[in-house]
Amino acid sequence: MAEYVAHSHDEHKDADGHGPSFYIKIWAILLVLFAISVIGPEFGHRTVTLITAFGIALVKAYMVAVNFMHIKHERKYIPYIMFAMLGMVFLFYIAVSTDVQATSGTNWENAAAKAIIEENKDFEHHLEH
């Protein structure tokens, strides 16, 4: 008895109208980006690693959201809700990272974290060179 809700799909048909070849092309581009994100960090350069691994992850996420999830063709409030959620996550990071990433502050000291960092100082020195 349950019927296919035609109006939801008509919205999509009008908005994108893509066929299988389009989706296969997007998949192939995603695979190329994936290959770059694996090869890039092999150079061992911090900036190249950041761009190829994390920068490309952002590009891939955008491509999946736009071309596979069709977020562009949703009601405007859907991307707004998603960005609001992402905003919450970044707000959380900004609010607590300064304390979490420090080992001491006004009237407090994280002795355990300091000890761990001290123990692994040689490794950090190795990373810098």
């Binding site: 974290a113 692994n120 490794f123």
Partner: peptide
């Protein structure tokens, strides 16, 4: 991410 940046090891 916060802890990864705090502890490079």
């Amino acid at each position: 991410l916060m802890l990864r940046l705090k502890f490079p090891h």
